[in-house]
Nucleic acid binder design. Structure first.
Lengths: 346, 346
DNA sequence: GTGAAAGCGCTAACAG
DNA sequence: CTGTTAGCGCTTTCAC
């Protein structure tokens, strides 16, 4: 058993109140008492029990961070940003990985509630409304990450996903692509839905024929699967737009494996512009989102809400996405036309 | 304020003890009492206070996980493994990122101690001995990740780093390379030191001329810097071995930027074999380590130690690294010899 | 099966 | 400046 504050008090021959003061308000303790108590603290290797402390004070200095996928460098950057902001304000971060699973998300919220976190930063994967409601009903702070506010009842930091979808398809349309596959998340996945709206907007306007492949989970493995589906399509598209770069990496890997060349046989564009995008086998075109900024800003907003005594203004910050065109997307006119023959011979 | 167990008791007209029983031993509560109390729990949205619960029971079901860099997919896989194992045993994971900073590591240990975690899984970046001592002296479980046990006083799961270093250099030597740069971590970074031992072993035996570039932090940015240093060397090496893949990606990116071709101008091999290695601009040769396994196994061991009442045997599991040769390493005989002229013209 | 009561380790009044 | 004391919300005997 670790030693308690009382053990320290006993050994230093002072009261528990004094030990507590040494810990929390050393300036009001007499120098020599201070020294004596501190010496005993060291001797006993005393570490105050956080549970007891927070139980008493009714307040923790911990925030929860729920992200869908720790394997995705985009979220990893978001987490770094959030961590840095939290540390700056002397908060700890309890990181939860929801695995893009609504049930797991809800279950983690339960854990965080038990931990009496001050607030939760969440990149909802499922029904954001439900999670936010749940959190709100327990009066903990909430800030949405990468997702617009449900009803402006909370802060949110996101990127304009509709715009992002538009930019990507516009880019492909500008390159002359008329048959495009859009590989995206399920309908619960708001970010994807929004991007899909942008995609549809431009597709219609530009006369693009769109094939949608919805996926439950967006990672490299599902990307590999999706690539197979695309290649099995009756009419092969000239370009693929993936809802994130992990997906695009999976697609690219599978295409390479099948001997399909990017962009000679098919153009490919991802989303997020993760660090690995420029140094991919074929440097990946993508839509940049300021991941670190997203996490940092969201955490700052959340903490400001948590600390706020009076009137906290819910802010909804929306960043702009940016096209980063690299070699994985090319003009249709540069495509190999011999592909069909190769297929027949295969 | 969230409602407390007492609120529930009052409203359900039972004692607090009964509510507690409903929560923890529902089978001993009379069915109709059970139903009534549960109804009130829902109405009041009661969530038991984890602090109070753990304070009373003196035990948490949380383990800490300290890793150096969340941006590195290797550690991200380790974390996934650890998470999965922990969840399996109904433990929560408190993730801490040490940023390869000994002070931050120590400070996080303090946080974990306050949280009264049951045990800590640590991939030490600095002086492992110190961290382990600190943890041990507070009687929390410890398991080392990716690092051999200091004195077999704890479990550890690692990969044979010496062997990994040997394999990599042997591979390069087999390809005829005699001038190799080894970009590694500082002397505190045990994994790197061990790999360095393997490197030195083989280098000497194979008559390889070794240049060592030690770095404080190993990520893509420092990799980019290191690449510049390598190219500024009086005598250009024919191959580079990086202590991890992130470093190698940074190096590769900078080399590409400088117009240096891999492997025509210089061979490059990394370590970890992260997911992105095969789909890099030049598919990266690397040394594979079973990251997920590492995390999973270590967490299992740690939890077994934590739960153990009697005699827990400290195990030291060592996995074998494996060479994965891809296109970034090639035989010296295939190297371009015109490089020198290009340099002059530049 | 249920209630009463003690106490986990700490903080925050309030006296002295 | 220091000691005393009353809980924070929960679990756990021990009676009934």
């Amino acid at each position: 058993m670790p030693s308690s504050l009382r053990d320290v008090a006993r050994k230093a021959k002072v009261s528990t109140g004094t030990v507590s003061n040494v810990l929390n308000r050393p300036e009001i303790v007499a120098p020599e008492t201070l020294a004596r108590v501190r010496k005993v603290i060291d001797e006993l290797k005393f570490v105050p029990n956080g549970f007891a402390r927070h139980l008493r004070s009714g307040q923790s200095r911990t925030i929860g961070l729920i992200i869908p996928d720790i394997t995705n460098p985009f979220y990893t950057e978001v987490a770094r940003g959030a961590e840095d902001a939290a540390n700056k304000h002397d908060y700890a971060v309890f990181l939860c990985i929801s695995d893009t699973d609504g049930a797991k998300e809800t279950s983690y919220i339960g854990v965080l509630l038990e931990q009496r976190v001050r607030g939760v930063l969440i990149a909802p994967t499922d029904d954001a409304h439900k999670s936010v409601e749940l959190l709100r009903s327990h009066h903990v702070g909430v800030a949405l990450l990468d997702h617009k506010s449900v009803g402006s009842q909370e802060c949110s930091v996101s990127v304009d996903h509709v715009r992002g979808g538009e930019i990507a398809i516009q880019h492909l349309a500008d390159l002359g692509h008329k048959e495009i596959v859009w590989i995206t998340g399920s309908e619960d996945y708001r970010q994807c839905v929004d991007r899909g709206i942008g995609v549809a907007n431009i597709a219609e306007r530009a006369g693009v024929e769109l094939t949608i492949i919805p996926l439950k989970i967006l990672n490299t493995s599902t990307g590999e699967e999706a690539a197979k589906k695309v290649m099995a399509l009756e009419k092969r598209p000239t370009a693929i737009f993936c809802a994130n770069d992990m997906l695009a990496f999976g697609v690219m890997r599978e295409l390479l494996r099948m001997g399909i060349k990017v962009p000679q046989d098919i153009s490919l564009i991802g989303y997020d512009d993760i660090y690995f995008a420029p140094t991919a086998a074929v440097p990946l075109s993508s839509i940049f989102q300021p991941a670190y900024q997203l996490g940092f800003t969201a955490a700052e907003l959340l903490i400001s809400e948590c600390e706020d005594t009076g009137e906290h203004q819910h802010k909804q910050i929306v960043f702009d996405p940016e096209l980063v065109a690299r070699s994985s997307t090319a003009h249709v006119s540069t495509m190999r036309t011999v592909r069909v023959m190769e297929d027949i011979s295969a």
